[in-house]
Nucleic acid binder design. Structure first.
Lengths: 217, 217
DNA sequence: ACCTGAACACCGTTCAAGT
DNA sequence: ACCTGAACACCGTTCAAGT
């Protein structure tokens, strides 16, 4: 289905260009006019395929979230859930612009709900109640999106440098612990393992909850 | 220090107006021209106080983050850290627009670092290494900002409704667990307690880590 | 059916000026 | 010192038209 219009245009082709533009220039650099230029068509041509900017970006999210699906492998509920969340994280990191523009709407396209289905099934099978499983997945979801939105890896080094500078400017009297921990705090801004650290704490806490409800296991 | 210029203008007065505008109309509704109108001055007047839009918004964040400081009370490290994170969450929920515009820069103003100082000192006193404490606070921070950015409470009900609709449209064959858990999943979109749930799992996981390093306690 | 330029109501910011 | 209109280079989108 590769473009059957006069100019070789199609919804998919437009979305490809949009994702390319978003990855390259960020959300700030994204505009309908620039996208049209990128595709070599008039701006208004895009409005024949999408009702407007918002609808185009929604369609982009919907399509991209289908690619987030991670291979669910064998192992304990905890191992499988961990893999699922790490796959979601990796998928988002590949396209940080998507996270930025998803702030204002819930993520409930069929593609995104595949992940929900997989996560819920892992947890319900493991003995969590449906309510616990729903809350747990929601927590993991918020943590994962927060991590990509507020600590995109491509920004890690500059954030680290800015943090060092800010910490050095503090008075040791008012900020004693931060003064002693300047290195560790700055490192945590650039540390790719921080996400895994928090994820493992969350999973540990979920495991404790599950064990307390099923003392036999 | 209430406005000493010809028009009664001051940096603080401008920031007050900016926060009011941001709370009322969201980041989409915020513009330099509208802020100037709101304040009853010419647009360019603002440029006498701030170099531009970005600097103005940065100043707004810096000032607002000082207000996040929660009263640190007595209790175990876990109780105190929990209160600190809940205070941060409540402060952000009061001004969701701030979260939106903080996406692109690290949060390292002195005001924000007060919270870091308090959290680091609680955890280091409790026996966490500086590295663990830094990672732990970073995880809590990402979780908290993610929760406000991707699940602002004022949007909870409409998100819940949209989720119910999306879940009902799914084929039970492809999404069996989600079909059974529709109520619980939809509820988790509107559930004010989801934040607390995830926070408590994180804290539980941190407690397990701490205990494993200090088997005596 | 598919595509588009012109026009409208918006932006942020530079510049040169007004008091 | 403090304030500002005009102008420039951008936006998204409506409308009326071109092929």
């Amino acid at each position: 289905v590769v473009g059957r219009s006069r100019l070789g245009l199609s919804e998919d082709g437009i979305l490809d260009g949009a994702l390319r533009l978003l990855d390259r220039d960020g959300l700030d650099g994204f505009s309908m006019r620039r996208l049209a230029d990128e595709l070599g068509v008039g701006t208004m041509t895009l409005y024949g395929y999408f009702r407007g900017r918002d609808e185009l970006l929604d369609a982009l999210i919907d399509r991209a979230s289908e690619e987030l699906e991670g291979l669910v492998t064998r192992g304990s509920w905890r191992v499988r859930l961990r893999q699922l969340v790490l796959a979601m994280h990796a998928g988002l990191v590949a396209h940080p612009g998507l996270v930025e523009l998803r702030l204002r709407r819930p993520l409930i396209s069929p593609g995104a709900l595949r992940l929900s289905e997989a996560a819920m099934s892992i947890m319900c099978d493991a003995g969590f109640s449906r309510r616990e499983a729903a809350r747990a997945y929601r927590s993991l979801f918020l943590y994962t999106f927060g991590a990509v939105a507020f600590a995109p890896p491509n920004r890690a080094d500059s954030d680290r440098a800015a943090t060092v500078e800010a910490l050095q400017a503090l008075s040791p009297a008012e900020y004693p612990t931060l003064g002693e921990s300047a290195t560790e705090v700055a490192d945590s801004m650039a540390d790719q393992e921080v996400f895994d650290f928090g994820l493992d704490r969350l999973l540990e806490g979920l495991d404790r909850l599950r064990r307390s409800r099923r003392p036999a296991a």
